[in-house]
C-alpha cells in the first residue's frame, strides 16, 4: 500500500467514521429513553443548584453512580440507565475523592448541608472538601436543594421524613433539657433503652473513643461535649450538649442506637456504615465517661464475658 496524503487523511477519517457509527451512533439510537421508577424532573431551584454543582467542579470528586460492587457504601439502589434520562450533561464522575452522591438526597436535613457547605470540616472533621461559603447563602440554598434531590423520588420520601422529625426535634429542644432528654430516649425501641454498655470501661477503650470522637463528632458537639463545636451556629436544633444528660436516664444502649442510626430531623447523621459495633460502644462510653460523667459500663449485668478482654 502506498501512503499518499489522500490515503492517510481520507483513510483515517473513514475508519473513524466507521468506528463512530458502531460505538457512538448505534448506542445512541438504541439508548434507554424510559425513565426509571424513581425518576422525577428537577424543580427550577434544583436545576439552579445543579448549575452551581457543575460550575464549581463538584463532579471531579463526587460520583453519581452506585455500582453493584458498592455493597458496603450504600448499594440499596444500584444505578439504572433510566435514572439519568433528564441529565444533560450526565454527571457520573470519575473519582470518589468524596462519597458517591446519587442517593444523597434526604440523608441529612438542610441545616446539616448549610454547615457542611460553609466549612465541611465542621460536620466532617477529616473532610478534604473545599469550603463553599464564597458562593453566598442564596446559592448554598440552591446547591442544597440540588443535593437533596439526588435519589429523586426516593430522596423525596427521605425529605418528607426529615421534615416530619425536624418539627418534633425542634419542639423537644425548645421544651428544655428535661423534655429533650426524655424525647431522645423515648423514641427508640424499648429494648435498646434498657441495654447498658456491654464492654468494660478501659483506658484503651476510652482512648479509642477519644480518637473516634475527634474524627466524627467534634465538629458539632465540640471538644468538651457542650454542643458548641464550629458547626453549631448553622444548626437548629443545635448539637446536643452532653453535659445536661446526667441523671436523665441515658443508657449506653440509647447512645449506641442514636449514633448507629442518627436522629432524623436533626443534623445528627447515622454512623452505621462508618463505625463497627465496638467503635460505637467505645465512643458512647467516651461521651458517657467524660461529658455526661455517668457511664453504665462496668455496672449492669454483662452476661457471658466476651471472648477477649484485657
Amino acid at each position: 500500500m502506498k501512503m499518499t496524503p489522500r490515503a492517510v487523511v481520507i483513510g483515517s477519517l473513514l475508519i473513524l467514521a466507521a468506528v463512530v457509527f458502531v460505538v457512538i451512533y448505534i448506542p445512541y439510537v438504541t439508548r434507554t429513553q424510559t425513565a426509571s421508577a424513581i425518576f422525577r424532573r428537577r424543580t427550577p431551584t434544583e436545576a439552579a443548584g445543579r448549575k452551581l454543582y457543575i460550575a464549581n467542579g463538584c463532579v471531579y470528586c463526587h460520583s453519581q453512580s452506585v455500582r453493584s460492587i458498592d455493597w458496603g457504601l450504600g448499594a440499596e439502589r444500584i444505578a439504572q440507565a433510566g435514572d439519568y434520562v433528564g441529565d444533560q450533561p450526565i454527571l457520573l464522575g470519575s473519582q470518589r475523592t468524596g462519597p458517591d452522591l446519587s442517593q444523597e438526597g434526604g440523608a441529612h436535613p438542610n441545616d446539616w448541608h448549610r454547615a457542611h457547605f460553609v466549612n465541611p470540616r465542621t460536620t466532617r472533621p477529616n473532610s478534604i472538601m473545599p469550603a463553599f461559603e464564597f458562593i453566598g447563602p442564596e446559592n448554598i440554598k440552591h446547591l442544597t436543594a440540588y443535593v437533596q434531590s439526588l435519589g429523586m423520588k426516593n430522596a423525596g420520601r427521605r425529605m418528607q421524613r426529615q421534615k416530619h422529625w425536624k418539627a418534633k426535634a425542634v419542639e423537644a429542644y425548645e421544651a428544655g433539657p428535661d423534655a429533650n432528654a426524655h424525647w431522645l430516649a423515648e423514641n427508640i425501641p424499648f429494648g435498646w433503652r434498657k441495654i447498658a454498655n456491654p464492654y468494660p470501661s478501659t483506658v484503651a477503650g476510652l482512648a479509642r473513643g477519644h480518637k473516634i470522637y475527634q474524627d466524627f463528632c467534634l465538629g458539632c458537639h465540640g471538644p468538651v461535649g457542650d454542643g458548641m463545636g464550629p458547626g453549631q451556629p448553622d444548626l437548629y436544633p443545635p448539637p446536643l450538649n452532653f453535659t445536661i444528660l446526667k441523671n436523665r436516664g441515658i443508657s449506653g444502649g440509647i447512645l449506641y442506637y442514636q449514633i448507629m442510626n442518627g436522629i432524623t430531623g436533626t443534623a445528627m447523621p447515622y454512623f452505621k456504615r462508618e463505625l463497627e459495633s465496638e467503635k460505637i460502644w467505645d465512643v458512647s462510653n467516651y461521651v458517657a465517661v467524660y461529658f455526661i460523667n455517668q457511664s453504665d459500663a462496668n455496672h449492669a449485668p454483662r452476661g457471658i464475658d466476651t471472648a477477649y478482654e484485657p
Binding site: 448506542p27 445512541y28 434520562v85 444533560q88
Partner: peptide
C-alpha cells in the same frame, strides 16, 4: 448551550 447529550449517551460520547 449544553455541549452535551442527555443521559447515558452523553457518557458514551464523552469518554470516546
Amino acid at each position: 448551550d449544553s455541549g452535551a447529550l442527555a443521559g447515558m449517551a452523553d457518557a458514551v460520547i464523552l469518554w470516546f
